[in-house]
Design a protein around this nucleic acid. Structure first.
Lengths: 155, 155
DNA sequence: GAAAATTCGTTAGCGCATTAACGATTATGA
DNA sequence: TCATAATCGTTAATGCGCTAACGAATTTTC
């Protein structure tokens, strides 16, 4: 078959593999957590609050690698569901601090179990060494495509 | 530091690396193609049409790994921009065939150049062997998280 | 040959990503 | 000390992902 000048070898594209794998992973993860009635982004909010306690919306968005406006709706829905509440920061009038409510910790416990299940499923048949290699190569790619200004604190 | 029972080791999560890397890659890719005035999904449409010629919306969605309703808006906008047109299929009244217009091929040529640039940038410092390993490991993960019913023809 | 099942493309509703812009607040610099 | 710059959270507009449901057309089954 004569290659057209307009053809592009998707199969050999790093972006193609990344997108395909990420898409499949997200689908599986969403199926895993759907019974708990929350979304991927809500699970991430729960995780960061469990890990680091109350924090500002700007900090939370930064840790989640999304822009602050993207977080507004997610927090709105979580607040409506009784998972968290936003309180004015006593030290800085600009900030609101996101506080998990008791229900959040219960739900996050379940998310941890889900996260471990999907992780186990995703890495089935891969040795620790291969997982380490995958992590190293993915991090290399990530650093390659990240311009310095984009590096955000994600402690 | 005593680990809380609510803590989850994000750094050791395959999903975390995948999401971080994919997110960074998408950001870089969007920056790369933004000057051409089209989006990632539009670029994909152009690519598949260049590769395989006119096809139904259902086939196109399948190749792009998205649900057909997700494609409607993208095609609406591309049609409005004069990049393609939808024509009724002569053989099957249910189907519409998506036909690229001349402008589409011109734009796709530019996309190929962009795709190659971002691919080169993403894989800088990685040997062919490492790229092959990354592909193999990503595909293994993708297969692990894909239930059989989800396998779609993406020839 | 006709009824039932499936496919196709659409609309509606919802979740979530971006950028731009805005007002309120705080930090910085002269 | 005050003007300027930056930060915070929001709204608006836009792009795009999903599922559910619908009507039209085709395929399948009996």
């Amino acid at each position: 078959m004569v290659l057209s000048v307009l053809q592009y070898d998707f199969e050999e594209s790093l972006g193609y593999w990344l997108t395909m794998t990420h898409h499949a992973y997200m689908r599986a993860f969403n199926e895993e957590i759907a019974p708990h009635g929350i979304t991927f982004r809500q699970a991430q909010v729960l995780g960061w609050l469990a890990l680091e306690g109350p924090m500002s919306q700007a900090d939370l968005a930064s840790r989640m690698l999304i822009e602050p406006p993207s977080l507004v709706g997610t927090l709105d829905r979580m607040e409506a569901s009784g998972l968290l509440e936003r309180r004015a920061c006593p030290d800085d009038g600009r900030k609101k601090l996101v506080h998990p409510l008791p229900e959040a910790d219960k739900l996050w416990s379940q998310m941890i179990a889900s996260g471990r299940r999907i992780r186990r499923r995703a890495s089935a048949g891969l040795s620790d060494r291969e997982l380490a290699t995958l992590k190293r190569l993915l991090n290399k790619v990530r650093k390659n495509v990240t311009t310095p200004m984009q590096v955000k604190c994600a402690k």
